[in-house]
């Protein structure tokens, strides 16, 4: 008897699951509806001839881009769509400036994809990534140094790295780079492609002139007697070119 009831119960549950699937919205989907609600408010206001505010503009752009993906457009087309939804004449005076960057994710056939729009009301399209490997702006007072990449991978030097300790497959006058960093603004990188030789400019470190970390050749005060010689010896031992 009991087992019959249990069987009936299991059948009922099974039936329920097969024919009655609740929607079970995830937090992400609820957020999607929030964007839609704000966008719909924006659309109605626009239809009444109003210029849009920051929140209205962002919501409307997001919603339209997400729907373009839903329509089956590919990534590039959807991204471009983001730049063609609103123009300065559609929004309040200050709004183009207030909508600088929008990050959103749309559901494509291959899943969610991040789209980042830059100044979508004024720029007309995504920024180009083809910026040439431009010569950095060198800080004043830097001395020259020629670096040759003898390896088969690109080597990127950054603004505050102790050049003396850079990758051992970079060939240059190591002693001349003692206590030096690239003469560039913080965050600027100089990339030396495999086989390439580049001339850079270097400036001395300031502060207490203590170098720790980096390539592991110093770990102490730069100006201590014998520090350079000891570091050069270690560099030679470890195969640093130009030491």
């Amino acid at each position: 008897m009991l087992s019959l009831m249990a069987t009936l119960y299991l059948l009922m549950v099974g039936t329920h699951h097969r024919y009655c699937q609740p929607v079970r919205l995830s937090p992400r989907e609820q957020n999607r509806l929030q964007v839609f609600a704000a966008a719909e408010l924006a659309r109605r206001r626009r239809a009444r001839g109003l210029l849009l505010s920051q929140a209205e503009a962002v919501a409307l752009i997001c919603d339209e881009v997400m729907e373009a993906a839903r329509d089956g457009l590919d990534y590039a087309a959807v991204e471009q769509r983001g730049y063609e939804i609103l123009y300065p004449a559609d929004v309040l005076e200050d709004v183009p400036r207030l909508v600088g960057r929008i990050e959103l994710e749309a559901l494509f056939a291959d899943g969610h994809r991040l789209i980042v729009l830059h100044d979508p009301i004024t720029s007309g399209g995504p920024p180009s990534l083809d910026a040439a490997n431009a010569e950095p702006q060198w800080l004043e007072g830097g001395g020259p140094l020629r670096l040759a990449n003898t390896s088969d991978v690109p080597i990127a030097l950054t603004s505050h790295f102790h050049v003396f300790e850079a990758n051992r497959r970079l060939h240059f006058d190591r002693a001349a780079a003692w206590g030096m960093r690239l003469a560039v603004a913080a965050g600027v990188k100089v990339v030396i492609e495999p086989g390439q030789t580049r001339e850079v400019r270097v400036v001395p470190f300031g502060g207490a002139r203590i170098v720790r970390g980096h390539g592991g050749l110093v770990d102490g005060p730069l100006d201590a007697p014998g520090a350079l010689e000891a570091a050069l010896a270690l560099a030679r031992e470890r195969g640093y070119e130009g030491a």
Partner: peptide, 22 residues
Amino acid sequence: GPDEIIAGWGNTMRDGLGVRAE
């Protein structure tokens, strides 16, 4: 100035560079 602290990839907020290694 030249010693601005910037977080992120290849920027200055790294051990022994923009931040002290002790």
